[in-house]
Design a binder for these strands. Structure first.
Lengths: 220, 220
DNA sequence: CGGCGTATGTTAAAATTTTCACATGGGTGA
DNA sequence: TCACCCATGTGAAAATTTTAACATACGCCG
């Protein structure tokens, strides 16, 4: 019934909370106001015990014999995930990925506001994408400081990513979503998550070539 | 010195092999032809023992006292990951994400060839993106069958994703990279990986609000 | 050609994460 | 109010994954 609780929990729990949140939104939209961990798990291919355990790290949100009140759990998850406020984000790189992110309306819907996009390309500067202005990369430091930007999305080529990340952190950014296919080295008080598009396809290629439960036994 | 080996290994290993591959490519490009697990780990923020263990699932690729021959290990990883051939891929959805994927040249460089993009929008059909034609969604079944497409990228709204996935699988696709923010339910012999953009940002929002090593102790 | 420094491959231990199993408590209906 | 049903929350077990530690083997140098 209340928030509180445990000291440590798996890193994957946060990601799952995000899935729960989305599934609950869907249920809410369809007028369903109570759900059991079993039903929620069915929707997401996640074991019910996993869901109960994940939630238990943060509090007791359900009613025994009844399940969870969808609206209430949504409110709690919103709070836990830090989605009960607006976040200002900048995107670095107005290429295809950067543009796609600027156009991705789910971000805005969740409270992630794209304050500006930065690029070096003269032809792009001055234009805007989905309402967000494209500004010169050289102005990024001032902009981040003046607007107290905390989050950034890096969508530049691998070779430039580290320099961009360093500059962002120096300006005050403390969370980075990195699309550049490279491991960015950062101070440990800066949070950085990477989305690696190639890696995912490569993993698929692997799975198609072999199967994990089969013996790996090709000799050279 | 040879490929062979173990029966089971962590799911995360494949993803890391992909990272190793990319880092090795970079080393190779810079004319470095030998690397130790320690040095490679430093580049990637991965412990050297982790690297040795990952590689050991597939064979003995290094020389004691010496490290790994960059070119040789690249060749082996390429084989293991299934990147020693071309893959034909279709993209479903010519929106911002679909277009960004079609324009993402790293895919092509790795042997993932975007055979076609499918969409319902009359205005888009007939055009092409980065050399790949945009075709009517209704033709997808024939196209997949005729061209023996095995992999697909789903870049459609959440509401349409399940139907698209079903159609793809029915046509013969056995691996799917899903960008739609929804858990797609599939037969277990179909491989599906999801890239969840919102979830990543939400995880960042969480980490910025709290820190995992701090006690979670806010009462309602 | 033998000893030495080095970095692998591996085995065993530690840490993390998931799953199981069930006691617990809320709600409902008689 | 009481008995019964149901699904939660949790503590303990199982499974998975990472880290540590070290014996082993390779190549170099004198």
């Amino acid at each position: 019934m209340a928030r509180r609780k445990k000291y440590k929990f798996p890193k994957t729990t946060i990601e799952r909370l995000s899935y729960y949140f989305r599934a609950l939104e869907d249920l809410s939209k369809r007028g369903i106001d109570t759900v059991s961990s079993e039903a929620l798990g069915g929707k997401l291919n996640i074991k019910s015990s996993q869901i109960r355990k994940d939630l238990s790290y943060f509090g007791d949100f359900g009613k025994r014999g009844m399940g969870y009140d969808v609206k209430y759990l949504l409110k709690e998850l919103k709070y836990i995930l830090g989605l009960d406020r607006e976040w200002s984000v900048v995107i670095v790189g107005a290429g295809h990925i950067g543009a796609a992110m600027a156009n991705y309306d789910s971000f805005r819907k969740r409270g992630f506001n794209i304050a500006a996009i930065f690029d070096n390309d003269e032809k792009k500067i001055g234009k805007e994408i989905n309402g967000s202005p494209i500004l010169p990369y050289d102005n990024i430091d001032d902009f981040v400081k003046q607007n107290k930007i905390e989050m950034a999305i890096i969508a530049v080529p691998a070779a430039a990513a580290q320099a961009v990340a360093d500059k962002l952190v120096e300006s005050g950014v403390t969370a980075i979503l990195n699309f550049a296919p490279v491991a960015v080295q950062l101070d440990e008080n800066v949070r950085c998550l990477s989305v690696d598009l190639t890696t995912k396809l490569e993993a698929l290629a692997y799975y198609m070539s072999y199967s994990q439960d089969k013996l790996w036994k090709i000799y050279s």
